[in-house]
Amino acid sequence: MSGAYTGFILAAYGFSALAIGGLGLWTYLDARAQRRALADLDARGIRRRSDGSARSDTQKGAASR
């Protein structure tokens, strides 16, 4: 691939790869941070009453609030 337009094509693909790569990285890091925070709480003995046993009414929908 060579020609007068190579720079434009590379710029378009380059910016796109950078932006989507950044989006993917941010999504991954955010997911990891929340998983760790939950594991940390769990290690301190703080967990949802519904985990393991039957769900209680007060905990219902806690995740959506």
Binding site: A37, R47, S64
Partner: peptide, 8 residues
């Protein structure tokens, strides 16, 4: 998960 962390 974030909302669970906040609630907990």
């Amino acid at each position: 998960l974030r909302r669970r962390v906040e609630a907990l």
